[in-house]
Nucleic acid binder design. Structure first.
Length: 497
RNA sequence: GGUCGGAUGGCCGAGUGGCUAGGCUCAGCUCUGCAAAAGCUGCUACAGCGGUUCGAAUCCGCUUUCGACCUCCA
């Protein structure tokens, strides 16, 4: 098993990954709140961690990947009106909360499939784990780190900080938080403004409510992840992932809750992806600058010049390291589209190459270079999942493949072993690890027969120097998005836009 | 205000001390009936100012500037 290193947000440095149980890896990723349609910003963590879990599998780990669905009313507990996001939105849409949550969950899953994100092993919902959350809250109360007020339960952060390193993950200093001048409503029940809700009493008009030892109410936001991750991955598990914006307060709170409930920190490695920005600003509901999945795929949004294929989005995201911000623009998305098309066509060409099978390379220098490019892919992934560098290497190889077809690279330049390595590298990294798929599904035989017939007619016309007919066929097909290419060897291939 | 992280060629983006990532765009060339595709070549950048060093995009300091978090957020 190759040595995997990646950046641990908790220690703020790259570390060698050692799983708790050799050969097994547990990964928990904060999933979406299904009170609205997912947007481009959401694509980043789920594609990032899809690649993480794919690569762990590639390294031979048996991975249990858990990604939750937040379908319980987690509310803006520090916010102005303590709104239950799910309940409030449901009222607006005149939907049952369950109905709304189902709708957006389905849309989310639809997006995930299009992005070719593999399904998590377990996708627990917050509403399905109320009992576990209540049990965990009771334990925290028993241990003296939570208190009940008017049917709500709060975590005593100040007391926690006296005995544990509160704020280490997010670099927060408790005194600064206590001193903050920001005045927020709905704080009067708390002993300190830094305390966060574990359970919230439900006012009469609140739709989502469950019976608890403290009356009818609903769980706080942070507790669901702690309850569900420990249930399915254990009290201490390997990797917890999510967006950087969840560092505080969400993940900091998770650490505090779990540490008290279980007597030790919950996670060995924390991973955080950076944000997608738009005009330099984070894409988010509160900024009103989101582009939803459906808008992205249809192009139906004022900021979009055209629709973008899910695979183009995936490629665009993976061309950047996951810890860097990624700025949205039509220009960069279009660049990604062209680039991906070229790379994928080279890959298809590679699969068709019938190599003479000479044991010795005709061009030893090139042969060695190709071997190096291939082998480096593993090193790059093992160094903090550097998908950008993997893609760069695949692009280095593309001209070699195209050159073999075009005749610029001698057919025997590479040894048979190198060709085999090349085919394997593209398959493993481009398809299995990066999870890329072709932009269009493979055409069925009938379609191919029709196009082949047209190509045949055109080839005949060209032989007779009847360029009017040959150009007519080519141009008309081009109008329909089918591009013909006269290859150097006299054959004709086609691509579909 | 506090904490943290950025500033790389026309654009997007890797990269932590020497070996000019990669992509897109643009220009020229090869191939070609023409075109497209492909290949080749060119465009040598690291916010500014100091410092450390034989040598810095990469380390240190200061300045300018952008952003994230501090409130729900991927």
């Amino acid at each position: 098993m190759a040595e995997l290193h990646f950046y641990n947000s908790y220690t703020r440095q790259k570390e060698k990954f050692t799983s708790i149980t050799p050969g097994y890896a547990g990964l928990y990723v904060c999933g979406p709140t299904v009170s609205g349609e997912s947007h481009l910003g959401h694509a980043r963590p789920y594609i990032t961690f899809d690649v993480v879990q794919r690569y762990l599998k590639h390294l031979g780990y048996k991975v249990r990947y858990v990604r939750n669905i937040t379908d319980a009313g987690h509310f803006e507990e520090e916010g102005r009106d303590a709104i239950d996001k799910v309940g409030e939105k449901a009222k607006l849409e005149k939907l049952e909360p369950m109905e709304m949550v189902h709708k957006y969950t389905s849309l989310f899953h639809y997006g995930m499939r299009l992005f070719n994100c593999e399904e998590p092993a377990i996708e627990p919902t917050a509403t399905g784990h109320i009992i576990e959350q209540i049990a965990m809250i009771e334990t925290i109360i028993e241990k003296g780190y939570a208190y009940e007020v008017n049917g709500s339960v709060y975590f005593d952060v100040k007391k926690y900080a006296e005995n544990y390193p509160y704020g280490k993950l997010s670099g927060r200093i408790l005194d600064d938080l206590l001193e903050t001048t920001r005045e927020l409503d709905g704080q009067e029940e708390k002993r300190n403004k830094v305390d966060f809700a574990l359970w919230k009493n439900a006012p009469p008009e609140h739709i989502q409510r469950w019976i608890s030892p403290w009356g009818e109410g609903f769980p706080g936001w942070h507790i669901e992840c702690s309850a569900m991750s420990s249930k399915y991955l254990g009290e201490t598990f390997d990797i917890h992932g999510g967006g950087m914006d969840l560092l505080f307060p969400h993940h900091e709170s998770e650490i505090a809750q779990s540490t008290i409930a279980h007597g030790h920190p919950p996670v060995n490695y924390w991973m955080h992806n950076n944000m997608i920005t738009i005009n330099g600003k984070k894409m988010g509901k509160s900024y009103n600058n989101v582009i939803k999945f459906s808008e992205l795929f249809s192009g139906n949004h004022p900021l979009l010049e055209q629709p973008y294929h899910p695979m183009v989005i995936r490629f665009y995201i993976l061309q950047t390291h996951y810890r860097s911000t990624l700025d949205f623009s039509n220009e960069s998305l279009q660049a990604s589209e062209r680039a991906f098309r070229r790379l994928w066509e080279a890959y298809e060409l590679l699969q068709k190459i019938n190599h003479p099978g000479n044991a010795d390379a005709g061009d030893k220098t090139l042969d060695q270079q190709v071997i190096t490019w291939c082998n480096e892919c593993e090193d790059f992934m093992c160094d903090d999942f550097n998908t950008a560098k993997v893609i760069a290497n695949l692009f280095e190889i593309a001209p070699v493949i195209n050159g073999m077809k075009g005749g610029q690279v001698a057919a025997n330049a590479l040894s048979a072993n190198t060709i085999t390595l090349l085919k394997k590298t593209f398959k493993v990294f481009l398809e299995d690890v990066l999870g890329m798929q072709p932009l269009q599904a493979v055409q069925n035989n009938n379609f191919d027969k029709v196009i082949s017939l047209l190509i045949e007619i055109r080839t005949d016309a060209k032989k007779r120097k009847d360029f009017a007919t040959s150009d007519q066929i080519r141009n008309k097909l081009a109008e329909g998005g089918i591009l013909l290419k006269d290859e150097k060897d006299g054959t004709v291939s086609y691509t579909i836009e």
